[in-house]
Simulated assay, not measured.
Amino acid sequence: MFSPTKEKVFMGQNLIWVMILLGQIHGYKSCIQKERMALLEIKKHMIAVAKEGESNFVFPTWTNDTKSDCCRWEEVKCNRSSGRVTVISFGLMYMKESSLLNLSLLHPFEDVRILDLGWNRFSGLFDAVEGNKSLSRLRKLEILFLDLNEFSSSIFPFLNAATSLTKLSLKANNMDGPVPVKELRDLTNLEVLDMSWNRFNDSIPVQESFPLRNLRALSLRNNNFSSSMGLQGKFAHIFHISRICKLKNLQELDLSGNKLVGHFPLCLTNLTRLRVLDLSSNQLTGSIPSSLSNLESLEYLSLLDNNFEGFFSFGSLTKLSMLRVFKIQLVPTFSYQNLLIICFSWICQ
Rank of each mutant, 00 (worst) to 15 (best):
F2Q: 10
S3V: 05
S3H: 06
V9G: 02
N14K: 13
N14T: 12
W17A: 11
M19S: 10
M19Y: 10
K29Y: 04
S30M: 11
I32Y: 09
I47W: 02
V49A: 01
A50D: 04
G53P: 03
P60T: 01
P60Q: 03
W62H: 01
K67I: 12
R80K: 15
R80Q: 15
I88F: 08
M93G: 14
L106I: 03
V112N: 03
R113L: 15
L115Q: 06
R121M: 15
F122G: 00
E130F: 12
S136Q: 10
L138I: 08
L141P: 06
L146Q: 07
L148H: 14
L148M: 12
S152M: 00
S153A: 10
F158R: 06
L165E: 01
A172R: 04
N173Q: 05
N174D: 09
D186G: 09
L190W: 11
V192P: 00
S203R: 07
S209Q: 11
L212A: 01
R213T: 06
L215N: 00
A217Y: 04
R221K: 12
K234P: 08
I244A: 14
N249K: 15
L250S: 05
L253N: 05
G257L: 01
G257P: 03
G257A: 08
T269D: 01
S281K: 06
S281H: 07
N282V: 04
L284W: 09
P289R: 02
S290Y: 05
S291C: 09
Y300N: 08
S302K: 05
S302D: 15
L304H: 13
G315V: 07
S316W: 08
L320E: 05
L323A: 07
V331R: 09
P332S: 09
F334P: 01
L340R: 08
Q349T: 13
